[in-house]
């Protein structure tokens, strides 16, 4: 189990700290995807700090650990911030994002940092990897779960649906997908660019057990994920309704911020907003 369990009161301070980490890292690097990272802060908080995932940060290759696969690899700053705050590596490493000779890569590369399970950044690939983990656990007598975080735009990739089909074929009930359903992809709103709806019905038709949740309510995310963990047969999917850029009003308001770091002036404003909201 998690070495340190956090209580309800701490989640807001964790989500605030993660957002500040993301902001500082990407502003310092002058590039990255802060809005995509902000969007999934509560989801990742639920996984690492809400008692959903079991892991040992001092033993990153512990064979019994639950796996977290960041299939939307461009939210790497969020992953790194969470891993450092979970104790995988010193917080000061975050300053090295996107720098020469640093393991803190722009997108995650397997084993470059403790706790980074897979190489991601080309969208659509993580669910297959998570399914392979679950099948491998079955073969080696381990009962861990694999959690795969995907973007909504990412679901336009065909491989996602190959994996969806295979997961229910293999009755991979220990595979849990999470969609960060923020309704935006890079070039605009999903329903304008390449519509996904009816999203829930699609996953159900592929044989998945689907739950939906307000994706910024940490407690609700935790309870839905706990429910999916108990599913005896089907792979589970959590559709988390989120806001891209959550926590910074002017980023929330404009999808043009996708893949852009904030200027120092914008960052100062953002820092104020994030700090004051708790």
């Amino acid at each position: 189990m998690v070495e340190h369990t956090y209580d309800k009161g701490e989640w807001t301070s964790i989500t605030r700290d993660l957002r500040l980490d993301i902001l500082e890292m990407t502003t310092r690097a002058g590039s990255g995807h802060p809005s995509s990272s902000f969007s999934a802060v509560e989801i990742v908080t639920a996984l690492y700090f809400g008692g959903v995932m079991r892991y040992r940060s001092h033993d990153p290759h512990w064979p019994e650990r639950d796996r977290f696969i960041l299939s939307k690899g461009h939210a790497a700053p969020l992953l790194y911030a969470a891993l450092s705050r979970a104790g995988y590596f010193p917080h000061s490493m975050l300053e090295k994002l996107r720098e020469i000779d640093s393991p803190v890569q722009g997108h995650p590369v397997k084993d470059m940092l403790p706790g980074v399970e897979s190489t991601n950044g080309s969208l659509g690939q993580g669910l297959s990897f998570g399914l392979g983990c679950v099948l491998g656990g079955r073969l080696t007598g381990k009962d861990f779960h694999a959690f795969v975080l995907m973007g909504d735009g990412e679901c336009q990739e065909g491989q996602v649906w190959e994996a969806a089909m295979a997961a229910s074929h293999f009755k991979a009930n220990r595979l849990i997908g999470i969609i960060d359903y923020n309704k935006y992809q890079e070039c605009g709103p999903i329903d304008r660019e390449m519509a996904l709806e009816p999203l829930r019905a699609k996953w159900e038709a592929f044989g998945w057990r689907v739950e939906e949740v307000g994706g910024h309510d940490t407690e609700a995310v935790i309870s839905k994920l706990q429910r999916l963990r108990k599913e005896p047969e089907k792979p589970g999917l959590l559709i988390a309704h989120t806001v891209k850029g959550k926590g910074v009003s002017f980023v929330e308001a404009d999808y043009i911020f996708h893949g852009r770091a904030l200027s120092p002036e914008q960052a100062a404003k953002a820092r104020k907003e994030i700090t004051s909201c708790s």
């Binding site: 297959s128 399914l131 392979g132 099948l135 491998g136 080696t140 074929h169």
Partner: peptide
């Protein structure tokens, strides 16, 4: 099945379990 991308990804997940 006839899904090579998925095949490779699943293989990588299996490898991460020591297979």
């Amino acid at each position: 099945g006839i899904a090579e991308s998925n095949l490779v990804g699943i293989g990588a997940g299996l490898e991460s379990c020591g297979l």
